[in-house]
Simulated assay, not measured.
Amino acid sequence: MKKVYLLSLCCLLLTQVHYAQQKFDKWWDEIEELELQGKSVSALEKAEKIKRKADRKENPQQFIKAFLYVAKYKLILKKDSEEEVYQDFLAEIEDQNAPTRQVLYSFLAESLNDYYKENRYRINQRTNTDSIARDFLTWSKDDFQSKIMSYYQKSLSSEQKLIEASLKDFTEILNYGENYNNYRSTLYDVLANRYLTFLKHHNYNPENKRSHYLIETEFYGLPKDFVSIDLSAYEDGTQKIETLKTYQDLTRLHLQQKNALSV
């Protein structure tokens, strides 16, 4: 009798989850149609509705997707709304728990980097100050680099919760492929690789003369030897060392998991 009850309960829960997903899909179809009609105000209102529903139902993927859509529409509809969107990010990050908080940190870092790239010429004319202002619109190039790297690093905090989180809950918003289940098997992997993509392709100090090639053979040894290297001796003022540190953390994780595919 107990087995029959548990089976019935599981079927009921699966039905409810399926129905909830259908509702979200229907709402997103409506938003797409509103966009095609050029009705951004109505699309914003619908996205805000999804955001409230997803938060109430603790659906992190739908919540983050809706939050990003709301931010997009604010930027489209409101003049000089960049600072408002930035503060929205900070407020939601403060209000959310792991792993939603970490995913938002990653998107905030990416958004700030996109803003810097689009406004690079003007930003590079600014002089550095002793402290970073609250208003990101006044930041210098170094301020952007510092904050972007800081937010990416915070996206990798609460490591154990990122490892334990259900990766499929974030499939749609993080746009990863089918091989991630073989090679990057946790949410920590996905967020770490987003950070690595930034580090490898967005160098804020390309003219730095202190950069050097790492030719020591220990960097090309076995994974178990690589993770034991003390990188503090190699600080050179570039993003190269931060890249190696992140690779160390990823390698250490997969060694602990005994994931032969990644090592």
Rank of each mutant, 00 (worst) to 15 (best):
Q145A: 09
L108N: 05
V103M: 12
S140M: 08
K53N: 10
L156E: 00
E92L: 15
Y73Q: 03
K51G: 05
T127Q: 08
E118R: 15
R120Y: 01
R52V: 15
S150I: 04
Y69A: 09
Q87R: 13
F89P: 07
G38Y: 05
L137F: 10
S155F: 03
E82C: 09
Y121C: 01
Y121W: 05
W27N: 02
S155I: 04
R101M: 12
L75H: 10
Y152G: 07
Q87F: 13
T138N: 06
E33Q: 10
E118D: 14
S140D: 07
T100R: 07
I93Q: 08
R120I: 01
A98Y: 13
Y152K: 05
Q102H: 12
L104C: 09
F67Y: 15
F67G: 02
N119S: 00
Q62L: 06
W139N: 07
D55A: 12
R56M: 10
D55W: 12
A98R: 13
F24N: 09
N128G: 02
E84G: 07
F136S: 03
L44Y: 12
T129P: 00
S111L: 03
Y105T: 04
L36S: 06
R134T: 13
Q153K: 06
L68I: 14
E118C: 04
E94I: 10
L75S: 11
D114R: 15
S40F: 04
F144C: 00
N59W: 08
D114E: 15
Q37T: 03
I50V: 15
E58C: 11
N97V: 14
K154I: 00
L75N: 13
E33K: 11
Y105L: 07
K147S: 02
V70Q: 14
E84A: 14
F89D: 10
D95G: 04
E48H: 05
K74W: 14
S140G: 05
N128T: 05
D135Q: 06
D130F: 03
A91M: 12
E30N: 11
I132C: 04
A133C: 05
V70S: 15
E45L: 09
D29P: 00
A43Q: 02
K39M: 02
R56I: 08
A109Y: 11
K74D: 13
I93D: 09
A54K: 06
K72G: 06
K154N: 01
K78H: 04
K51P: 01
Y152L: 04
A109N: 13
E110V: 04
L75G: 14
M149E: 13
K79Y: 14
T127N: 11
L104A: 07
N59Q: 10
G38Q: 03
Q37M: 08
D95N: 09
D114M: 14
E118L: 15
A71G: 11
R101I: 08
K46D: 06
S146E: 15
